Amino acid sequence: MSEATAPRPAIRLPAFLRRLDPAVLTAFGCIVLLLLLGSLYSRSFLSPEYLLQQLKVASFLGVIATGMMLVILLGQIDLSVPWVVTTGAMMACAAAGHGVFGLWISIPFGILCGVAIGFVNGLGVAYLRIPSMIITLATNAVAQGLMVVYTGGFSPQDEASRAMRYIATGSAIPSVPNAVLVWALIGAIAVWLLARTTFGRAIYAIGNRERAAYLSGINTRRVTLLAFALSGGLSAFGGVLLAGYASKAAQSMGDAYLLPSIAAVVLGGTHILGGSGSYLGTIAGVILITLLQSILSVMQITEAGRQLIYGAVIILMLLLYGREKAA
């Protein structure tokens, strides 16, 4: 056999790259591309200060997307994110205005309000068998109505506590924002839950086929209820962080986080119909969405244009993954 006809040895990727989901590799590749494109608009785009600022902004979305990922892995969806975020922020700020005791309980109280809404969502999906899209839209509307009644339709007057501002904007470690550390801690817990616990394995099993998971002995209702409660708590905590970042809560402050949180999860390779996905992919998706938002802002794309882009991304992922799951 001549050298010209001899088969060429196949190029072998490193072991850790072969284990990664192609969607995750694609997301990280897009991050690099966005960084290069951003540097063409501004030289400061690649500066450490700007990148740290983007990472801090990404941490708010990252906390919310963590809860969204848990629900999507089940094959469900949580559309109550906008007003759960707002409720968590408003209630934390409201508690902070009630003396020393209120300051101590402000953050836990805000998170607990989100857990309560998520608990209602979980009850509806797991026990009443209401489609998640319907029940979460309903609770989102109820939360909106309650907050409008509470504020009288005006902007909330309560301010964020010092602890909320410190967690969102301070730096316990020099040059490292506290919000990034909070996201890293939540991410580490999420990875441990999904990879090392029975609860995490049950989430993947339910997402793949709920009936088979039930027949194998998994308490599918309890797992679904807990996942929605965690999603509500994480969304509310994201609102607490946002209130600390802005020093106060605002009406509809969570509206901008629904589509980006879904898009970040599916861009990172989590199957939109449940059953597969990694938290590393969600991290990549969150950073990708944040950089995309930054570039769109530089290009002066309106909020309506950004929502169109997020919606197109989700439709594209449904076309790519949805038919594969159905097959």
Rank of each mutant, 00 (worst) to 15 (best):
M253G: 01
Y310C: 12
I315D: 11
Y257E: 09
G305N: 08
I287D: 06
I295Q: 12
L230T: 13
I309D: 03
V265G: 08
Q300G: 02
A312T: 09
A312K: 05
G269M: 03
L292R: 05
F237V: 02
L308G: 13
M317Y: 08
Q251L: 13
L316A: 15
V266N: 10
V240P: 01
G238H: 07
L242V: 12
R306Q: 15
D255H: 00
L291A: 04
S231Q: 07
I272S: 00
S276P: 04
Q293N: 15
L296M: 15
L318Y: 04
Y257P: 03
D255C: 03
L267P: 05
F237N: 07
L234A: 10
L267M: 14
D255R: 05
G277T: 01
A304M: 10
G239L: 00
L230E: 08
G269N: 06
S252Q: 14
A256G: 14
S278R: 13
G238R: 07
K248G: 13
V240I: 12
M299D: 00
G233W: 01
I301R: 06
A264K: 06
L308A: 14
S294R: 14
Q251S: 14
Y310D: 06
G281T: 04
F228Y: 12
L241T: 06
L320P: 04
A236F: 01
I262D: 05
T270Q: 05
A284T: 09
L241M: 14
I283A: 15
G238A: 10
K248L: 13
Y245V: 06
I287G: 01
S247D: 11
I262A: 03
I301V: 11
L318E: 00
L291I: 04
G311Q: 04
S231T: 08
S297E: 11
